[in-house]
Amino acid sequence: MSYELSHLRALEAEAVHVMREVAAEFERPVLLFSGGKDSAVLVRLAEKAFRPGRFPFPLMHVDTGHNFPEVIEYRDRLVERIGERLIVASVEESIRQGRVVEETGPRASRNRLQTVTLLDAIAEHRFDAAFGGARRDEERARAKERVLSFRNEAGQWDPKSQRPEPWALYNTRIRRGEHVRVFPLSNWTELDVWQYIAEEGIELPSIYFAHRRQVFRRDGMLYAVSPFVELMDGEEPFEASVRYRTVGDMTCTGGVESKAATLEEVVAEIAATRVTERGETRADDRVSEAAMEDRKRVGYF
């Protein structure tokens, strides 16, 4: 007996430890659930951490109203299966209440707006810890973020005054009104997530697998034709076989041309890819060199 864990199981053990630690030391945690693959993994890890008991926190989805319908169906099916509580925080509602102003034009996106909805929901429910599926391999600013990432009363992240995080001793002390974002998947890579999904047989929204749909090409990416996006001059819809590497709004998430219809085929394609998932499929990260860092500072996921 070598008493050595495989790297996936070591990552799993670390994530489960983080989740239990947060559940034990915070009063009102919440799991931010987007319907994407990373949050699907988070839910599976929560099952590992707390079953046969209930989750000691609800799930919360920040619904922009621009989601892929397949993702909403998946979300509701999953919540039904696990029997846990789901809170939906609506960007639509934030717009109606005048908390945020809808962008207009062909490049309009609610991506930026959801930060306000998220922070409002955290304040309203007095959540003091929010689990997210972010990984350090996604982006350079995230590479330096802590597993427990402190947010001040305005929900903001200050990358320069992060708490040191030696060993696995997480400092959970905060004041009222402050909260932490918790990233149990910090040390996972995109490929780890996919391999774990494959090993565990985790169900995902169908858009992660190749399917035929109406798309148009913009900035070298394939966007889904939807009521939420205005086409610009010269943009012609056409049908293609695509799959998505990330799940965001239909307005800012591009698909990749693919014939990979099964988990095994997707994993093989991911393993061979030459482009990061955010670089390939997320318009929101392409805006500037420090796009992610700027959004994180103001309270983005």
């Binding site: 495989s6 790297h7 070591a10 490929l191 090993e199 393993a271 061979a272 890819t273 030459r274």
Partner: peptide
Amino acid sequence: GGHATAPTRAST
């Protein structure tokens, strides 16, 4: 030349 994949049983 993509991700040089470690087998899922590899150690860290």
